[in-house]
Design a protein around this nucleic acid. Structure first.
Lengths: 203, 203
DNA sequence: GTCTATACGCCGATAGAC
DNA sequence: GTCTATCGGCGTATAGAC
Protein backbone atom coordinates (compact mmCIF):
# COMPACT_ATOMS: atom_id res chain seq x y z
CA UNK A 1 0.00 0.00 0.00
CA UNK A 2 1.74 3.10 -1.19
CA UNK A 3 -0.56 5.37 0.77
CA UNK A 4 0.47 3.82 4.02
CA UNK A 5 4.03 4.62 3.22
CA UNK A 6 3.34 8.28 2.58
CA UNK A 7 0.96 8.73 5.44
CA UNK A 8 3.26 7.53 8.13
CA UNK A 9 6.02 9.29 6.20
CA UNK A 10 8.43 6.51 5.80
CA UNK A 11 11.32 6.69 3.37
CA UNK A 12 11.80 3.65 1.23
CA UNK A 13 15.05 2.28 2.45
CA UNK A 14 15.35 -1.21 3.83
CA UNK A 15 14.38 -0.80 7.48
CA UNK A 16 11.24 1.03 6.50
CA UNK A 17 10.22 -1.58 3.98
CA UNK A 18 10.49 -3.99 6.89
CA UNK A 19 8.29 -1.79 9.06
CA UNK A 20 5.71 -1.47 6.34
CA UNK A 21 5.61 -5.22 5.77
CA UNK A 22 5.35 -5.80 9.51
CA UNK A 23 2.51 -3.30 9.89
CA UNK A 24 0.57 -5.00 7.15
CA UNK A 25 1.05 -8.47 8.59
CA UNK A 26 0.37 -7.43 12.17
CA UNK A 27 -2.85 -5.75 11.04
CA UNK A 28 -3.97 -8.72 8.97
CA UNK A 29 -2.94 -11.71 11.04
CA UNK A 30 -1.95 -10.30 14.38
CA UNK A 31 1.46 -10.11 16.02
CA UNK A 32 1.54 -13.69 17.28
CA UNK A 33 0.45 -15.19 13.99
CA UNK A 34 3.22 -13.32 12.20
CA UNK A 35 6.67 -14.90 12.20
CA UNK A 36 9.89 -13.08 11.44
CA UNK A 37 10.11 -15.23 8.34
CA UNK A 38 6.78 -13.81 7.21
CA UNK A 39 8.05 -10.29 7.73
CA UNK A 40 11.33 -10.97 5.95
CA UNK A 41 9.59 -12.47 2.96
CA UNK A 42 7.07 -9.66 2.73
CA UNK A 43 9.95 -7.21 2.83
CA UNK A 44 11.66 -9.04 -0.07
CA UNK A 45 14.36 -10.60 2.02
CA UNK A 46 15.15 -14.28 1.65
CA UNK A 47 15.75 -14.96 5.30
CA UNK A 48 14.79 -13.65 8.70
CA UNK A 49 18.48 -13.24 9.53
CA UNK A 50 18.53 -10.19 7.29
CA UNK A 51 16.23 -8.43 9.72
CA UNK A 52 18.73 -8.43 12.56
CA UNK A 53 21.16 -5.82 11.22
CA UNK A 54 18.17 -3.43 11.33
CA UNK A 55 16.29 -4.49 14.44
CA UNK A 56 17.50 -6.37 17.51
CA UNK A 57 14.39 -8.49 17.89
CA UNK A 58 10.74 -8.91 16.98
CA UNK A 59 9.39 -6.66 19.71
CA UNK A 60 11.60 -3.84 18.50
CA UNK A 61 9.98 -4.05 15.08
CA UNK A 62 6.52 -3.82 16.58
CA UNK A 63 7.63 -0.98 18.80
CA UNK A 64 8.89 1.02 15.86
CA UNK A 65 5.70 0.40 13.92
CA UNK A 66 3.70 1.63 16.89
CA UNK A 67 5.90 4.65 17.54
CA UNK A 68 5.93 5.71 13.89
CA UNK A 69 2.16 5.67 13.79
CA UNK A 70 1.89 7.61 17.03
CA UNK A 71 4.46 10.17 15.90
CA UNK A 72 2.61 10.72 12.68
CA UNK A 73 -0.72 11.02 14.47
CA UNK A 74 0.80 13.42 16.94
CA UNK A 75 2.00 15.71 14.18
CA UNK A 76 -1.40 15.62 12.54
CA UNK A 77 -3.17 16.41 15.80
CA UNK A 78 -0.85 19.34 16.43
CA UNK A 79 -1.55 20.60 12.97
CA UNK A 80 -5.28 20.28 13.44
CA UNK A 81 -5.15 22.14 16.74
CA UNK A 82 -3.13 24.94 15.20
CA UNK A 83 -5.45 25.35 12.26
CA UNK A 84 -8.70 25.39 14.25
CA UNK A 85 -9.87 27.34 17.24
CA UNK A 86 -13.00 25.69 18.54
CA UNK A 87 -13.04 22.23 20.06
CA UNK A 88 -15.79 21.22 17.68
CA UNK A 89 -13.63 22.15 14.72
CA UNK A 90 -10.63 20.37 16.13
CA UNK A 91 -12.60 17.21 16.79
CA UNK A 92 -14.06 17.43 13.34
CA UNK A 93 -10.56 17.61 11.93
CA UNK A 94 -9.55 14.52 13.86
CA UNK A 95 -12.61 12.62 12.72
CA UNK A 96 -11.85 13.64 9.18
CA UNK A 97 -8.32 12.31 9.56
CA UNK A 98 -9.49 8.99 10.99
CA UNK A 99 -12.01 8.41 8.23
CA UNK A 100 -9.43 9.26 5.58
CA UNK A 101 -6.92 6.92 7.19
CA UNK A 102 -9.49 4.13 7.23
CA UNK A 103 -9.98 4.40 3.48
CA UNK A 104 -6.41 5.23 2.48
CA UNK A 105 -4.29 3.47 5.08
CA UNK A 106 -6.47 0.69 6.45
CA UNK A 107 -3.55 -1.22 7.96
CA UNK A 108 -2.72 1.68 10.21
CA UNK A 109 -6.27 1.92 11.46
CA UNK A 110 -6.59 -1.82 11.86
CA UNK A 111 -3.43 -1.87 13.91
CA UNK A 112 -4.66 0.97 16.10
CA UNK A 113 -8.24 -0.19 16.50
CA UNK A 114 -8.09 -3.96 16.71
CA UNK A 115 -4.61 -4.97 17.85
CA UNK A 116 -4.20 -5.41 21.59
CA UNK A 117 -0.92 -3.59 21.70
CA UNK A 118 -0.17 -4.23 25.34
CA UNK A 119 -0.32 -7.98 24.70
CA UNK A 120 2.88 -7.89 22.68
CA UNK A 121 4.34 -4.57 23.81
CA UNK A 122 3.80 -4.72 27.55
CA UNK A 123 6.26 -1.92 28.22
CA UNK A 124 4.63 0.59 25.89
CA UNK A 125 2.11 3.06 27.19
CA UNK A 126 -1.54 2.34 26.49
CA UNK A 127 -2.97 4.37 23.64
CA UNK A 128 -4.87 6.81 25.83
CA UNK A 129 -1.68 7.89 27.60
CA UNK A 130 0.27 8.65 24.44
CA UNK A 131 0.74 12.25 23.29
CA UNK A 132 -1.79 12.36 20.45
CA UNK A 133 -4.55 10.84 22.53
CA UNK A 134 -3.92 12.84 25.66
CA UNK A 135 -4.11 15.88 23.41
CA UNK A 136 -7.52 14.74 22.24
CA UNK A 137 -8.60 14.51 25.85
CA UNK A 138 -7.34 18.06 26.28
CA UNK A 139 -9.41 19.20 23.35
CA UNK A 140 -12.46 17.77 25.06
CA UNK A 141 -11.56 19.46 28.32
CA UNK A 142 -11.20 22.78 26.53
CA UNK A 143 -14.55 22.25 24.91
CA UNK A 144 -16.13 21.73 28.30
CA UNK A 145 -14.53 24.89 29.67
CA UNK A 146 -15.62 26.87 26.65
CA UNK A 147 -19.19 25.64 27.04
CA UNK A 148 -19.19 23.79 23.74
CA UNK A 149 -19.24 20.34 25.28
CA UNK A 150 -21.44 19.11 28.12
CA UNK A 151 -19.92 19.05 31.54
CA UNK A 152 -19.23 15.37 32.05
CA UNK A 153 -16.08 13.42 32.83
CA UNK A 154 -13.81 14.10 29.83
CA UNK A 155 -12.82 10.45 29.65
CA UNK A 156 -16.44 9.44 29.51
CA UNK A 157 -17.04 11.98 26.78
CA UNK A 158 -14.05 10.53 24.95
CA UNK A 159 -15.55 7.07 25.29
CA UNK A 160 -18.93 8.11 23.98
CA UNK A 161 -17.57 10.12 21.09
CA UNK A 162 -14.87 7.75 19.91
CA UNK A 163 -16.96 4.74 20.80
CA UNK A 164 -19.22 5.77 17.96
CA UNK A 165 -16.42 6.80 15.62
CA UNK A 166 -14.11 3.85 16.21
CA UNK A 167 -16.80 1.20 16.19
CA UNK A 168 -18.09 2.51 12.89
CA UNK A 169 -14.60 2.50 11.42
CA UNK A 170 -13.97 -0.96 12.83
CA UNK A 171 -17.06 -2.25 11.08
CA UNK A 172 -15.89 -0.70 7.84
CA UNK A 173 -12.47 -2.32 8.23
CA UNK A 174 -13.93 -5.72 9.04
CA UNK A 175 -16.36 -5.53 6.14
CA UNK A 176 -19.46 -5.58 8.33
CA UNK A 177 -20.38 -2.26 6.76
CA UNK A 178 -19.99 -2.61 3.03
CA UNK A 179 -19.26 0.92 1.86
CA UNK A 180 -16.04 2.80 2.43
CA UNK A 181 -15.63 4.95 5.48
CA UNK A 182 -16.20 8.15 3.58
CA UNK A 183 -19.79 7.12 2.90
CA UNK A 184 -20.58 7.17 6.61
CA UNK A 185 -18.54 10.15 7.66
CA UNK A 186 -20.91 13.11 7.76
CA UNK A 187 -23.72 11.15 9.37
CA UNK A 188 -21.45 9.58 11.96
CA UNK A 189 -19.73 12.83 12.83
CA UNK A 190 -23.07 14.52 13.41
CA UNK A 191 -24.28 11.83 15.75
CA UNK A 192 -21.05 11.58 17.69
CA UNK A 193 -20.82 15.32 18.08
CA UNK A 194 -24.41 15.69 19.21
CA UNK A 195 -23.78 13.09 21.90
CA UNK A 196 -21.26 15.31 23.64
CA UNK A 197 -22.27 18.79 22.45
CA UNK A 198 -23.86 21.10 25.00
CA UNK A 199 -26.14 22.88 22.59
CA UNK A 200 -27.44 19.62 21.23
CA UNK A 201 -31.20 19.32 21.48
CA UNK A 202 -30.51 15.89 22.90
CA UNK A 203 -29.92 16.68 26.51
CA UNK B 1 -14.44 -15.78 40.43
CA UNK B 2 -17.42 -17.68 41.62
CA UNK B 3 -19.81 -15.39 39.79
CA UNK B 4 -18.28 -16.25 36.46
CA UNK B 5 -18.98 -19.89 37.16
CA UNK B 6 -22.64 -19.33 37.89
CA UNK B 7 -23.21 -16.88 35.11
CA UNK B 8 -21.98 -19.08 32.36
CA UNK B 9 -23.65 -21.92 34.28
CA UNK B 10 -20.80 -24.29 34.49
CA UNK B 11 -20.84 -27.22 36.84
CA UNK B 12 -17.74 -27.66 38.94
CA UNK B 13 -16.27 -30.85 37.60
CA UNK B 14 -12.82 -30.99 36.16
CA UNK B 15 -13.35 -29.94 32.55
CA UNK B 16 -15.24 -26.87 33.66
CA UNK B 17 -12.62 -25.84 36.14
CA UNK B 18 -10.26 -25.96 33.19
CA UNK B 19 -12.56 -23.78 31.12
CA UNK B 20 -12.90 -21.26 33.91
CA UNK B 21 -9.14 -21.08 34.39
CA UNK B 22 -8.65 -20.71 30.65
CA UNK B 23 -11.24 -17.94 30.40
CA UNK B 24 -9.55 -16.01 33.15
CA UNK B 25 -6.09 -16.35 31.62
CA UNK B 26 -7.22 -15.62 28.07
CA UNK B 27 -8.97 -12.48 29.33
CA UNK B 28 -5.99 -11.31 31.36
CA UNK B 29 -3.01 -12.20 29.20
CA UNK B 30 -4.47 -13.15 25.86
CA UNK B 31 -4.61 -16.51 24.14
CA UNK B 32 -1.07 -16.47 22.81
CA UNK B 33 0.48 -15.42 26.08
CA UNK B 34 -1.26 -18.30 27.83
CA UNK B 35 0.42 -21.70 27.71
CA UNK B 36 -1.28 -24.99 28.42
CA UNK B 37 0.95 -25.23 31.47
CA UNK B 38 -0.53 -21.96 32.73
CA UNK B 39 -4.03 -23.31 32.26
CA UNK B 40 -3.23 -26.63 33.93
CA UNK B 41 -1.69 -24.91 36.94
CA UNK B 42 -4.58 -22.48 37.30
CA UNK B 43 -6.94 -25.44 37.18
CA UNK B 44 -5.00 -27.17 39.97
CA UNK B 45 -3.42 -29.79 37.80
CA UNK B 46 0.27 -30.50 38.08
CA UNK B 47 0.90 -30.99 34.39
CA UNK B 48 -0.52 -29.98 31.08
CA UNK B 49 -0.84 -33.64 30.14
CA UNK B 50 -3.85 -33.83 32.44
CA UNK B 51 -5.71 -31.51 30.10
CA UNK B 52 -5.69 -33.94 27.22
CA UNK B 53 -8.21 -36.47 28.55
CA UNK B 54 -10.69 -33.55 28.56
CA UNK B 55 -9.75 -31.57 25.48
CA UNK B 56 -7.91 -32.65 22.34
CA UNK B 57 -5.87 -29.44 22.01
CA UNK B 58 -5.56 -25.81 22.99
CA UNK B 59 -7.91 -24.48 20.34
CA UNK B 60 -10.63 -26.79 21.56
CA UNK B 61 -10.38 -25.25 25.00
CA UNK B 62 -10.74 -21.76 23.60
CA UNK B 63 -13.62 -22.92 21.40
CA UNK B 64 -15.52 -24.30 24.37
CA UNK B 65 -14.94 -21.14 26.36
CA UNK B 66 -16.30 -19.10 23.49
CA UNK B 67 -19.26 -21.38 22.85
CA UNK B 68 -20.23 -21.53 26.51
CA UNK B 69 -20.30 -17.75 26.71
CA UNK B 70 -22.32 -17.47 23.53
CA UNK B 71 -24.79 -20.14 24.66
CA UNK B 72 -25.33 -18.38 27.93
CA UNK B 73 -25.76 -15.03 26.23
CA UNK B 74 -28.16 -16.55 23.77
CA UNK B 75 -30.36 -17.88 26.57
CA UNK B 76 -30.32 -14.52 28.28
CA UNK B 77 -31.23 -12.69 25.09
CA UNK B 78 -34.11 -15.09 24.46
CA UNK B 79 -35.30 -14.51 27.97
CA UNK B 80 -35.10 -10.75 27.60
CA UNK B 81 -37.03 -10.86 24.34
CA UNK B 82 -39.72 -13.00 25.90
CA UNK B 83 -40.16 -10.75 28.90
CA UNK B 84 -40.31 -7.48 26.99
CA UNK B 85 -42.37 -6.26 24.09
CA UNK B 86 -40.84 -3.06 22.82
CA UNK B 87 -37.41 -2.89 21.22
CA UNK B 88 -36.44 -0.16 23.64
CA UNK B 89 -37.24 -2.43 26.57
CA UNK B 90 -35.40 -5.35 25.04
CA UNK B 91 -32.30 -3.27 24.36
CA UNK B 92 -32.49 -1.88 27.85
CA UNK B 93 -32.54 -5.43 29.18
CA UNK B 94 -29.48 -6.30 27.15
CA UNK B 95 -27.63 -3.21 28.31
CA UNK B 96 -28.56 -4.09 31.86
CA UNK B 97 -27.14 -7.57 31.35
CA UNK B 98 -23.88 -6.28 29.88
CA UNK B 99 -23.32 -3.80 32.69
CA UNK B 100 -24.03 -6.47 35.29
CA UNK B 101 -21.66 -8.87 33.57
CA UNK B 102 -18.94 -6.23 33.53
CA UNK B 103 -19.13 -5.84 37.28
CA UNK B 104 -19.85 -9.45 38.23
CA UNK B 105 -18.09 -11.46 35.54
CA UNK B 106 -15.40 -9.17 34.14
CA UNK B 107 -13.45 -11.98 32.51
CA UNK B 108 -16.39 -12.84 30.33
CA UNK B 109 -16.76 -9.28 29.16
CA UNK B 110 -13.04 -8.83 28.69
CA UNK B 111 -12.94 -11.95 26.55
CA UNK B 112 -15.87 -10.74 24.47
CA UNK B 113 -14.82 -7.12 24.12
CA UNK B 114 -11.06 -7.15 23.82
CA UNK B 115 -9.98 -10.58 22.56
CA UNK B 116 -9.59 -10.89 18.81
CA UNK B 117 -11.32 -14.22 18.67
CA UNK B 118 -10.74 -14.87 14.99
CA UNK B 119 -6.99 -14.62 15.55
CA UNK B 120 -6.95 -17.87 17.50
CA UNK B 121 -10.25 -19.40 16.41
CA UNK B 122 -10.19 -18.76 12.66
CA UNK B 123 -12.94 -21.29 11.99
CA UNK B 124 -15.44 -19.78 14.43
CA UNK B 125 -18.01 -17.30 13.24
CA UNK B 126 -17.38 -13.65 14.03
CA UNK B 127 -19.40 -12.34 16.97
CA UNK B 128 -21.94 -10.49 14.88
CA UNK B 129 -22.97 -13.66 13.06
CA UNK B 130 -23.58 -15.70 16.18
CA UNK B 131 -27.15 -16.30 17.41
CA UNK B 132 -27.25 -13.85 20.32
CA UNK B 133 -25.87 -10.99 18.28
CA UNK B 134 -27.92 -11.60 15.17
CA UNK B 135 -30.90 -11.54 17.51
CA UNK B 136 -29.84 -8.13 18.73
CA UNK B 137 -29.74 -6.96 15.14
CA UNK B 138 -33.25 -8.32 14.76
CA UNK B 139 -34.39 -6.34 17.78
CA UNK B 140 -33.06 -3.22 16.12
CA UNK B 141 -34.81 -4.09 12.86
CA UNK B 142 -38.08 -4.59 14.72
CA UNK B 143 -37.60 -1.26 16.42
CA UNK B 144 -37.19 0.41 13.06
CA UNK B 145 -40.34 -1.23 11.71
CA UNK B 146 -42.27 -0.27 14.80
CA UNK B 147 -41.15 3.33 14.48
CA UNK B 148 -39.25 3.31 17.73
CA UNK B 149 -35.83 3.49 16.11
CA UNK B 150 -34.72 5.80 13.32
CA UNK B 151 -34.71 4.38 9.86
CA UNK B 152 -31.02 3.78 9.24
CA UNK B 153 -28.99 0.71 8.33
CA UNK B 154 -29.56 -1.65 11.29
CA UNK B 155 -25.88 -2.53 11.35
CA UNK B 156 -24.97 1.11 11.55
CA UNK B 157 -27.45 1.57 14.38
CA UNK B 158 -25.89 -1.43 16.09
CA UNK B 159 -22.48 0.18 15.70
CA UNK B 160 -23.58 3.50 17.13
CA UNK B 161 -25.48 2.01 20.03
CA UNK B 162 -23.00 -0.65 21.08
CA UNK B 163 -20.08 1.56 20.16
CA UNK B 164 -21.09 3.72 23.10
CA UNK B 165 -21.99 0.82 25.39
CA UNK B 166 -19.00 -1.38 24.66
CA UNK B 167 -16.42 1.38 24.69
CA UNK B 168 -17.69 2.55 28.04
CA UNK B 169 -17.55 -0.97 29.43
CA UNK B 170 -14.11 -1.47 27.93
CA UNK B 171 -12.85 1.63 29.71
CA UNK B 172 -14.30 0.32 32.97
CA UNK B 173 -12.60 -3.03 32.45
CA UNK B 174 -9.25 -1.45 31.59
CA UNK B 175 -9.44 0.90 34.54
CA UNK B 176 -9.53 4.05 32.42
CA UNK B 177 -12.84 4.83 34.11
CA UNK B 178 -12.39 4.37 37.82
CA UNK B 179 -15.87 3.51 39.06
CA UNK B 180 -17.67 0.25 38.46
CA UNK B 181 -19.88 -0.16 35.43
CA UNK B 182 -23.05 0.28 37.42
CA UNK B 183 -22.10 3.88 38.18
CA UNK B 184 -22.25 4.75 34.48
CA UNK B 185 -25.22 2.65 33.45
CA UNK B 186 -28.24 4.94 33.49
CA UNK B 187 -26.40 7.85 31.91
CA UNK B 188 -24.83 5.69 29.23
CA UNK B 189 -28.06 3.90 28.39
CA UNK B 190 -29.85 7.20 27.94
CA UNK B 191 -27.25 8.55 25.57
CA UNK B 192 -26.94 5.37 23.53
CA UNK B 193 -30.70 5.04 23.22
CA UNK B 194 -31.18 8.66 22.22
CA UNK B 195 -28.64 8.16 19.45
CA UNK B 196 -30.83 5.63 17.69
CA UNK B 197 -34.31 6.51 18.99
CA UNK B 198 -36.70 8.08 16.53
CA UNK B 199 -38.51 10.25 19.02
CA UNK B 200 -35.27 11.57 20.37
CA UNK B 201 -35.08 15.36 20.22
CA UNK B 202 -31.64 14.81 18.67
CA UNK B 203 -32.48 14.33 15.06
C1' DG C 1 -8.23 -39.43 34.95
C1' DT C 2 -3.88 -37.92 36.65
C1' DC C 3 0.71 -38.39 36.67
C1' DT C 4 6.23 -38.83 34.67
C1' DA C 5 8.83 -38.73 30.94
C1' DT C 6 9.74 -37.66 26.45
C1' DA C 7 9.23 -36.52 21.53
C1' DC C 8 8.73 -33.05 18.05
C1' DG C 9 8.38 -28.68 15.64
C1' DC C 10 8.44 -24.03 15.12
C1' DC C 11 10.34 -19.79 15.82
C1' DG C 12 13.37 -16.37 17.67
C1' DA C 13 18.04 -15.55 17.73
C1' DT C 14 23.29 -16.10 16.63
C1' DA C 15 27.73 -17.22 14.09
C1' DG C 16 30.24 -16.32 10.49
C1' DA C 17 31.24 -16.31 5.20
C1' DC C 18 30.76 -13.07 1.48
C1' DG D 1 23.90 -5.60 4.83
C1' DT D 2 22.53 -9.96 3.04
C1' DC D 3 23.10 -14.52 2.94
C1' DT D 4 23.69 -20.05 4.76
C1' DA D 5 23.72 -22.75 8.48
C1' DT D 6 22.75 -23.84 13.04
C1' DC D 7 21.59 -23.43 17.95
C1' DG D 8 18.49 -23.28 21.90
C1' DG D 9 14.22 -23.01 24.02
C1' DC D 10 9.55 -23.03 24.68
C1' DG D 11 5.17 -24.92 23.98
C1' DT D 12 2.22 -28.43 22.03
C1' DA D 13 1.34 -32.97 21.98
C1' DT D 14 2.02 -38.20 22.97
C1' DA D 15 3.35 -42.69 25.34
C1' DG D 16 2.59 -45.28 28.91
C1' DA D 17 2.69 -46.36 34.15
C1' DC D 18 -0.46 -46.09 37.97
Amino acid sequence: MEQEKEIIQIKSDAPDEILLAALKLFAQKGYFNTSLTDIANAAHLTTLASLYPHFPNKQAIASRVYENILDSLNISVDDIRRRNQKSSEQLHGIVDLLFKLTDDAPYIMQFLLTANINEFLPTQKPLLETPPFSKIIKIIQSGIKAGEIRNIDPLLAYGYFFGIINTTLGMVLSGSLDKNANAYQSQTWLIAWNVIAKKSPCF
